[in-house]
Structures are given as structure tokens and as C-alpha cells.
Design a protein around this nucleic acid. Structure first.
Length: 862
RNA sequence: GCCCCCUUGGCGGAAUUGGCAGACGCACGGGACUUAAAAUCCCGAGACUUAACAGUCGUCCCGGUUCGAGUCCGGGAGGGGGCACCA
């Protein structure tokens, strides 16, 4: 046997799997299906370590489930629309389609070098007309079912480039390219009615048992259901004009007697009305609109307000009028776009009140304080307590007071109980070229008219230019001109394209029947859906996953699928991190630009100057702490890269890339090969029957083998691949150390050794598939390892003859006790008390109590 | 600012979910093999005290529950992720 050559061996088995169509999924109703899916990549051009980790994990699951006998679907595709292609078009003068498809070709080759058990026959890209034509059909169905509509909404507007900016393109309130201060602007946009399913989306979270608790919690918070009250305040009209009203939503109606002001959003209709008449208000609104649209920006900004001069009547106190402010922190998108401020019990309101010198009256007093002695300083009191300073509410609990206010408001006709959601409808319009065109037409006579289904697909024009800013579709001379589908008169195509989150909201379903003439083939979807295990980054915990859940329900409503939840199991993996390096000039250095000297410090490779080593951070181009997977696969092979990705770090946590770690993984591949090489000539032939008698030595190895089967399987089932890896190391260590005693027992020992080696090879299969396949062949076993069943532990071999249990005295470890398992409590207690070490530790103290935990521990209380 | 998560030796981490803390790997030290190196193999190792036997401390910090806490509860510190047009 020759030294293991990863490069040639990996290519050989990749070709063998492809030739045998091993991983092409075929619907087979006789077999139980298992759908494994990793979040498909954006085709940036090169895979990065995050992809390697993600796909290595998915492949473990896919290959393991295959070995368990499941009919596995494990597809791959490309999330191919999006901004980077347009940026590339601008910077490199290359058409987005060309750039994207070239990137896909490159990345496909890189992924294939990883030896993943993917069904490449199902591959597609979301920018394929054959994909997005069906997305357009789905949109038309959504329109029919009132799940899509058009309305005005706010965007970040770059006044120089005349374009809408993504939040990430807004840096410190300015456009990233123009540097001009960004404005908030209203634009007519398409929305998906995700709020139609808000209750369902919230409640169904409880049933997603194989989702991480944190993701479910984040989604629940995102939907943000809160019970409260809507209260209407009459606006005092000094001039005797027609009375106006301001509706306010609050989750704390109980604090109404502590109210000291009302605040309107700068975008509130009443604010706009005031701004028309009052230049101060107009100026303030304009100032607020210079902020971006992101919640983060608005929340972090200094709280500013402007007194409108208007006063609102307190609904329960005839003598009290509240000033009405316009405030920059009131969001028009949430609630009614207006609030009442109770400074004593809300931190934001308190900050605002201190700034504008408004009264702070505590109306909830913690138990144990009295209403006179309790005051609020610079920290609002948001805890529990009883009502005070609140007329008829005094002495009530918060809950009772909320209910009392809501009841009185309802009776008085100026308010009602209300449930509010933080969730807003999903804006899907993008003023960009490289996305799926929205299939509608704007007609002067008929308004917005959907394109006829027979006229689909609406394809993107190819002859576009990117020199000018803004949407090339708007500038295109002929593409937009079209006859109105309703009246036939000249009309304009919609030039907005879909948010790329739309593309990724149904690709998982399309994989079931990727070449179907309809968006989805019912029979295929019924068989394969839902995805049994979905794997991807936690950064998608809210938006992508929530949109996909909505989209599946929407497709269900339109009759395309019969499931409402797309992902039965979800796993969110951690990031891949690496140390960062900076030269003396403070410029980031790549790992390839530095070296570790013999004394252990890091120097520049070229001029040996000092390098500052920074902490480990997520690999990113900007910090240059990137390791290229292609280099690693070229040097060590895919198996080594995959093994390292699965070792050490628990999958949900961040993984730290180290040279030592990859070297260790590489040594292990060599070690496995050596173990086989050194023993192969002395092993019995494949399939030899078990000898009747086995020596203790052989039985001990068998026990270890079967314990490893149990532990490795358990690790994979629980997504603790690092633990499975550790158990595989142990089995390999035991095998490397195993020596046959010789003599009469040799046959049995060699048999046990073969069993252990075959087990090891089978179990590294999902992690290092090429090495395992090569070893399988070397061991003289038939067929492909990829088709071999997973080993199953013999329960009889898992039982130990003797176990060691700890003996504690007053909770401190004092001795250990070797004893047969499952002894009676009395036996264990007596044996523990009889130990010399225990007797001397107890001394002359009286034993008051002995706690015996079967097969675990004895604790003597003295 | 709001929401969520994480914190265990020099490092990554394990601990059957409340029962022997530190499995396994990395880095390190010692040894074997070698003319030498590499590769490989064997041994060692949480910290402190001790010649040794052994003992004390120890899972970010403070407090609590318990016979027993890395694990549960309350408070705090540090680090990270998300915040609706990046994907």
C-alpha cells in the first residue's frame, strides 16, 4: 500500500460517486425521506470558510441519514440576485449576469472539490429565468389572494445619486458613495401582507421543537405581540376650529394619571398638517427626516422634540391639558404613530421630560414604599407595585388598573382594548436592476394591472448600462413600454424588482421539483417537504426564516403546497474566526504575510518587522484575516479541511481557525491510514464469521468499539460533531495501541480488530468521505461505503463489569469505589462506609445521612 | 437605545443535563528511533503548598437554593449577533 495521496484519492471517489449517481435523489414512497438543506450561498465568486463549515456539517447529516436508510434529498443552488453584482458592474464594467454566472461556475467547482453528497442534478440559480418566471406566477397568485399590495413607504434617499440606499449603504447618515446626507423619502412600493399571518406565525413557533429556543424567542420578539389600549385624546382648539383627535396606543394605560405630554411622529398626518402652517414644525420635521430609516439610528439618536403649541385634554382629568410635541423617537410604523409620555415609568419619556422640563409624577409605587416618600430621579421605575396619585386607580395592581382604564375608556367612547404587533408588512420593492421583475403594468386609465400569466416570464433586458446611478430599468428606452393588459393602451412596466429575500423564500420547495412547468409539483412537494434539517448562520434567525415561513403559508393559501412550516428542524452554526494582524503602520496584514518565529512571536514575512496580534474575529476581507479554503484543500485535501471544521468547536459556537488545528487534522488522516496499513495483512478476510471464543483482550476492544458506536451516533444526533470527533480519536488511539496477545487467542483478536477498524471507517465516512471510501476498498469490502449501513451497537457489549463511583464526605470527594453496577443502595452504602479512606475522613463524627445515587455517587453527611 | 446569545487549564473544548471538573485535540516539556533533521511512537502536565505522602484552591465576579452547583435562581462585569433595502 502506498502513502495516502489526498489529491488523487479525492478526485477518484468524487468521480465514482458522480458516475454511480449515488447522491441523485429519486422519489420513492416505499422509503422514508429525509430532506437536508444548507442555506444556499450568494455567488460571490469564491467559497469561504463559513461555507466550508456549513456544508461540512450538512454533509455529515446527509451521509449519516443515508447510512441510516433514509431516502435523502440534499440539493444545492445559488442565491444569485443582489447588490454585489450591480456594484461589480459599476466597478469592473462587467454585466451582472456574466459576473454572476462566472462566479457560480467557479464556486461550483470549489464546492465539488469538497466531496459533498449533493444532488447536483437539481441545481438552479434564482437569477435563472426558469426560476424567477415561477416566482412571478406566485406573485400574481398572492395578488389574487390579497397577500400583495401597494402603498407609500419610507426609504433612505441619496439626493445626489437619486437612488434608494440600503441601510448598510448609509454610513453616519450619509450615502456611502456620494457622501451626501441621506434623506427619508416616501415612495410607492410593493408589500407582502405578512401581518395577515402574524398570530399564526407567532403561535406556530411553539410547535417548532427542533428549532433553537433562541431563534424562536427572537422571532416572537420580532413579531412583538403586545396587549394594550388605544386612547383618543381631544385636541384643544383655541381658535374654535373643528375638534381634532389624537389616537395613542399604549401598553401602560394604567399610568395615564402620570402622563405629562403627548408626542407625535414626525411622519404623523397631524404633524404634516401642522408643518404646512408652521415653519418651525416644518423645519423640525425636515431635520428628523435627515435621519436614516433604521430603527437603530432612530433609537440611538438624541431624543429631540418640538412643542407644537397645541394642547390635548386629559381624558380623566378635566382640568389637565397636556402639551403636544413632535418627537424624533416616535415611529410612524408602530402603533398609531403617537404616544402619551409618562416620564416616571418609561426611561425614554423620562429623558425627554428632563430635557424639556416636564413634570414627573410617579403613579406606580413599589410595594413597601409609600406614595409620598417615593420619587423618581434619573431612572424610570418600570417594576411592579400599586397605583398611587391616580384618583380611582389608587391602590390597584398594575394589571387591575390597566383593565379598569380600558373598561372606562370603552364605556366613555374614547378608547378600547387593543392588541398591537411590532411586525410590519414586508416591503419587497427594490429600485434595482439585478432582481426578479415585478410583473405588473402601470396604465394611466386602469391603474396597476397585473401581467397576464400567459405573458410570463417578464425577463430582464440585457442591454443596460450602469454608468449612471439609479435603476437602469427606469432608463431603458424600450423595455418599459408595453400595452396595458386590460385596455390595450400604451402603458409602463413596473421597474421595481423583488427583494432578494423573496427569491430565498421558496427555493427549498422548488428543489423538490426543480424542472417542473409549474412553480411547484404537488406530488414532489408532498413527498419531500418540509425540510427535515435546515442549517445556516444565525444571522438569518429573524428575517430570512420568518419570510420563508410566511411565504410557505402564502403558497399554501394559494394551493401550491400542503404544509405551512418549511423547516421542521433548524440548526444555526457559529462563524469561523481567525487572529488579526497589523503591521507597524497599523495596516491589516494577511495570515500569509506573517510568520511565527522560533521564539514564538509574529513578524512580517518580508521585512521581519513587528506585527501586533489582535484578537480573533470573524474572517472578513476588511480585516484581512481570511484563509482561502481552496489553498487548504489544495494543500491538505478536503477531508482534512472538513475534519478540522467538525473538530473541537461545538457547531453552534464560533470556530477559531488555527494552523495547529488544521495540522492536527492532517496528522489524523495519516494516522487512520497507517492503522489500516499496518494491520491489513494480519486481519481475517472481509465477512469472516465471529469466532466462538474471544479473549478478554478481544472483548475489551469490542466493548470499546461498541461504546464508540453509541457515543459517535449520539453526538451526530445531537449536533455535537466535536464530541463525535473526540470519540473517534479515542477509538483510533485504542486501535493504534492494540496488540494481539498471540497464541490461541490470535484469531479472535484479529477478528475484533477488523470489527473495530471497519467501525472506525464507517463512522468517519460522513466526515472524511474520501479517506473512508479508500479505506473501505482497501479492507476488501464490497460496494461503496457511501451506500453502506450505519453500525449499530450491541447493547450487551455496552454493560461494564465494574464501575467506579465517587464517594464524597459533606460534598467533597474523598475516595472512589470500584463495584459491580446496579447494586442495591444498602450494598453500595456499606461498601462506601467500609473504605479505609472514608473511615479516616469521618473520624469520630456521627454519620447523619448517606445519599446514594445509583451507579453515580455516594455522599456521606456527617 | 431595544432584543438575543456567550464566558470552564497556555488555547479550542468535554462533563449521560444537579452527581469523580478538565474527556479529546492544539500548543508545551521529557524520552525513544535517527549520523542528524523531519515524520512517527511513548511518557508528563489546572494552580498553589510539599523533598515526598498528601493537602488547599479552582468553571468571569457577588449572593442564594441544595446532601451536592460548571449546570438551577437573583444581581453585576466583559465579549458577540440582530434591529426590517447586505446576503
Amino acid at each position: 500500500m502506498a502513502r495516502y495521496n489526498a489529491k488523487t484519492t479525492e478526485a477518484k471517489w468524487q468521480a465514482a460517486w458522480a458516475a454511480a449517481k449515488t447522491f441523485e435523489a429519486v422519489e420513492d414512497r416505499q422509503k422514508e425521506k429525509y430532506y437536508v438543506l444548507e442555506m444556499f450561498p450568494y455567488p460571490s465568486g469564491r467559497i469561504h470558510m463559513g461555507h466550508v463549515r456549513n456544508y461540512a456539517m450538512g454533509d455529515v447529516v446527509a451521509r449519516y441519514k443515508r447510512a441510516q436508510g433514509f431516502n435523502v434529498l440534499h440539493p444545492m443552488g445559488w442565491d444569485a440576485f443582489g447588490l454585489p453584482a450591480e456594484n461589480a458592474a459599476l466597478e469592473k464594467q462587467v454585466h451582472p449576469a456574466k459576473w454572476t454566472y462566472e462566479n457560480i461556475a467557479n464556486m461550483r467547482e470549489q464546492l465539488q472539490s469538497m466531496g459533498l453528497s449533493l444532488d447536483w442534478s437539481r441545481e438552479f440559480a434564482t437569477c435563472d429565468v426558469e426560476y424567477y418566471r415561477h416566482q412571478q406566477k406566485l406573485f400574481l397568485d398572492f395578488l389574487k389572494h390579497d397577500l400583495a399590495y401597494r402603498r407609500e413607504s419610507w426609504v433612505n434617499w441619496d439626493p445626489v445619486e437619486h437612488t434608494v440606499l440600503a441601510n448598510e449603504q448609509v454610513i453616519d447618515g450619509c450615502g456611502w458613495r456620494s457622501g451626501a446626507p441621506v434623506e427619508r423619502r416616501q415612495l410607492s412600493q410593493w408589500f407582502f401582507r405578512i401581518t395577515a399571518f402574524q398570530d399564526e406565525l407567532l403561535e406556530a413557533l411553539d410547535d417548532l421543537e427542533r428549532w433553537p429556543e433562541k431563534v424562536r424567542l427572537m422571532q416572537a420578539n420580532w413579531i412583538g405581540r403586545s396587549e394594550g389600549a388605544r386612547l383618543r385624546f381631544a385636541v384643544q382648539q383655541a381658535t374654535g376650529q373643528q375638534a381634532a383627535e389624537i389616537a395613542v396606543f399604549t401598553t401602560r394605560p394604567d399610568t395615564i394619571f402620570g402622563a405629562s405630554f403627548l408626542a407625535l411622529s414626525p411622519d404623523h398626518p397631524l404633524t404634516s398638517e401642522l408643518a404646512d402652517k408652521n415653519p418651525d414644525v416644518a423645519a423640525f420635521v425636515a431635520e428628523c427626516q435627515r435621519q436614516g430609516t433604521s430603527e437603530e439610528v432612530i433609537e440611538k439618536a438624541e431624543k429631540l422634540g418640538l412643542d407644537t403649541g397645541l394642547r390635548a385634554q386629559h381624558p380623566f382629568l378635566p382640568d389637565v391639558e397636556l402639551p403636544i410635541y413632535v418627537a424624533n423617537f416616535v415611529l410612524i410604523e408602530y402603533g398609531t404613530g403617537a404616544i402619551f409620555g409618562c416620564p416616571a415609568h418609561d426611561q425614554r419619556d423620562l429623558d425627554f421630560a428632563r430635557k424639556y422640563d416636564l413634570s414627573v409624577l410617579p403613579v406606580v409605587v413599589p410595594d413597601g414604599s409609600d406614595s409620598i416618600g417615593f420619587s423618581v430621579g434619573n431612572e424610570a421605575y418600570v417594576g411592579p407595585g400599586r397605583l398611587a396619585n391616580s384618583e380611582f386607580l389608587d391602590g390597584l395592581s398594575i394589571d387591575d388598573a390597566k383593565s379598569e382604564i380600558a373598561g372606562r375608556a370603552e364605556a366613555g367612547g374614547f378608547g378600547s382594548r387593543e392588541i398591537m404587533y411590532r411586525l410590519r408588512d414586508w416591503g419587497v420593492s427594490r429600485q434595482r436592476y439585478w432582481g426578479c421583475p415585478i410583473p405588473v403594468v402601470h396604465c394611466d386609465s386602469c391603474g396597476v394591472v397585473p401581467v397576464e400569466e400567459a405573458d410570463l416570464p417578464i425577463t430582464l433586458p440585457e442591454d443596460v448600462t450602469f454608468e449612471q446611478a439609479g435603476n437602469p430599468l427606469d432608463r431603458h428606452e424600450t423595455w418599459g413600454a408595453v400595452a396595458c393588459p386590460a385596455c390595450g393602451k400604451p402603458a409602463q412596466r413596473e421597474t421595481d424588482t423583488f427583494d432578494t429575500f423573496v427569491d430565498s423564500s421558496w427555493y427549498f420547495a422548488r428543489f423538490c421539483s426543480p424542472r417542473a412547468e409549474t412553480p411547484l409539483d404537488a406530488s414532489a412537494v408532498d413527498y419531500w417537504m418540509p425540510v427535515d434539517q435546515y442549517i445556516g448562520g444565525v444571522e438569518h434567525a429573524i428575517l430570512h426564516l420568518l419570510y420563508a415561513r410566511f411565504f410557505t403559508r402564502a403558497m399554501e393559501k394559494c394551493g401550491h403546497v400542503r404544509v405551512s412550516e418549511p423547516f421542521a428542524g433548524l440548526f444555526t452554526q457559529g462563524m469561523v474566526c481567525h487572529e488579526t494582524y497589523r503591521g507597524e503602520d497599523g495596516i491589516w496584514l494577511e495570515p500569509t504575510e506573517v510568520e511565527r518565529t522560533d521564539s514564538g512571536d509574529i513578524r512580517r514575512l518580508d521585512n521581519h518587522s513587528t506585527v501586533t496580534v489582535g484578537r480573533s474575529e470573524k474572517m472578513s476581507k476588511s480585516r484581512k484575516n481570511v484563509i482561502d479554503p481552496e489553498d487548504i484543500i489544495e494543500r491538505y485535501g478536503a477531508d482534512t479541511a472538513r475534519w478540522f471544521m467538525l473538530s473541537d468547536s461545538p457547531p453552534e459556537r464560533d470556530l477559531e481557525w488555527t494552523d495547529g488545528g488544521i495540522e492536527g487534522a492532517w496528522r489524523f488522516t495519516g494516522r487512520i491510514w497507517r492503522i489500516i496499513e499496518e494491520s491489513i495483512t494480519s486481519l481475517p478476510t472481509a465477512g469472516s464469521p465471529a469466532p466462538l471464543q474471544l479473549s478478554d483482550n478481544a472483548v475489551a476492544l469490542r466493548r470499546l468499539t461498541h461504546q464508540a458506536m453509541g457515543a459517535v451516533t449520539d453526538g451526530i444526533e445531537r449536533f455535537q460533531f466535536n464530541v463525535s470527533v473526540a470519540r473517534l480519536y479515542e477509538l483510533a488511539n485504542a486501535l493504534a495501541a492494540f496488540k494481539a496477545n498471540g497464541g490461541d487467542d490470535t484469531t479472535g483478536e484479529r477478528w475484533a480488530q477488523r470489527e473495530a477498524i471497519e467501525t472506525l471507517v464507517l463512522m468517519i465516512g460522513p466526515m472524511m468521505p474520501h479517506l473512508a471510501e479508500e479505506a473501505w476498498q482497501a479492507l476488501g469490502l464490497d460496494g461503496l461505503l457511501a451506500d453502506a449501513p450505519w453500525p449499530k451497537a450491541d447493547p450487551a457489549l455496552l454493560v461494564e463489569a465494574s464501575i467506579t463511583i465517587a464517594v464524597q464526605l459533606n460534598g467533597k470527594m474523598r475516595a472512589t469505589l470500584d463495584i459491580e453496577p446496579d447494586q442495591s443502595e444498602d450494598t453500595v452504602r456499606e461498601a462506601a462506609l467500609a473504605l479505609e479512606k472514608v473511615k479516616s475522613a469521618i473520624g469520630d463524627k456521627a454519620v447523619r445521612r448517606v445519599i446514594v445515587v445509583p451507579n453515580r455517587i455516594v455522599n456521606i453527611v456527617a
